[in-house]
Design a protein around this nucleic acid. Structure first.
Lengths: 206, 206
DNA sequence: CGATAGTCAGTGGCTGAGCCACCTGACAAC
DNA sequence: GTTGTCAGGTGGCTCAGCCACTGACTATCG
């Protein structure tokens, strides 16, 4: 038993370095500002002053972001935001899914769907109403999930859902499914993230 | 034709930064010295002097090696050589994760954790008690999740968690985190899948 | 004798000021 | 129009130094 944390001992508690936090913070900043590929970040001196850290530390944070492919730093120019890898790595991984037990894939997609539902519940209120307000017609699985996906926006979860959908398709129409979908839509409309996620439990027959 | 490399034009010739060369050089040094996992590199001050560079630059080189997983730098201890990844179970798409906005990865991992928690809540009752019964000590994020993972068993979700963990690490210890972990463990012990999943919402600070 | 608390040397983390190399864009000279 | 020059802004790197953390050693206490 080499490094068994041994229920008997407290975990080591490793503190994050300042430049790591900075890197995360700047990454969030890129997101918040809506910067896209090619856009320039403020100069190091200015960023350092605004964030209240030394230029050396800020520079390390940028270097970290660069080795992770998030930005590109050019001498004499500045730090440029990099377009995320165009070719999705997910498809390659998708191929191996066919060989897995169906139950595993079902459980995984249910988790992803729950995450999407939760995210959708946090979307703008008017958008939620526009996409999901009841109109008296029966909800279909595919249509409902298209709406939820629109609300949740693009992201890792959406890509995972695409990859998993091929091997864990949605259920056929049935009274029970319609009930679930109504409950799901209702929870998302109310903005109740927890309830929305819970509704997905067993949605695929897992 | 914006930036046609056009055999007619010379390549831009981007110079390697000093700290990049240093990183490569040190990596070779590890190889040449036959250092293995756990071995310590010479202290920064000494290495910097021997290599004829400033300590700041050498430190950046070590940081670069660390983000690439070659070494592990510990405050107050030194730079330790890391054993290369034991199992190759790392899906190809994991590499692309680094370039994604942090928020996306965080949300995705939260969804995966919720799925794992839900699965764990359905595990055998005696196993749940064995792994998660409170013992009066503070729970750490990593240890608690190891237990949940054991309960949930291997599967797609577990692999996704592994892949995501590197880019969306768990939170540092704090009172709020401990409360969440207690609530999570309690829900899993009760076999309450929905509650267990809900507890994961925002667990990573998303 | 064993366990505990205090001490201390060695290590990485971070700072601040400063100089240098590099890139760009504007402008003058041709 | 083309070319050469130059100034301003940007990141790369250095130096010297202080601080925080770790681990081992050493008293001290029961």
């Amino acid at each position: 038993m080499p490094d068994e944390p041994s229920a008997r001992r407290l975990a080591p508690l490793r503190r994050e370095r300042l430049y790591e936090s900075l890197a995360a913070h700047i990454s969030d900043f890129i997101e918040a500002q809506g910067l896209v590929g090619g856009d320039r970040l403020p100069p190091e001196r200015q960023l350092a002053a605004e964030l209240g850290v030394s230029r050396a530390t800020l520079s390390r944070a940028l270097a970290a972001l660069e080795t992770r492919g998030r930005i590109e730093v050019r001498h004499g120019v500045g730090a440029l935001v990099r377009e995320p890898e165009p070719a999705g790595g997910v498809p390659a991984w998708e191929a191996g899914l066919a060989a897995r037990p169906r139950a595993e894939v079902l459980v995984a997609r249910e988790a992803v769907l729950a995450g999407l539902a939760r995210t959708a519940a946090g979307a703008d209120s008017s958008m939620r109403v526009a996409m999901l307000a009841p109109d008296g017609r029966q909800r279909s699985f595919d249509h409902t999930w298209r709406c939820v996906r629109r609300l949740a926006g693009d992201g890792l979860l959406a890509e995972l859902d695409d990859a998993l959908a091929g091997h864990a398709p949605g259920p056929a129409d049935s009274a029970e499914v319609h009930e679930r979908l109504d409950a799901l839509a209702d929870a998302v409309l109310r903005g109740d993230a927890a309830a929305a996620a819970t509704t997905c439990q067993g949605m695929l027959g897992g």
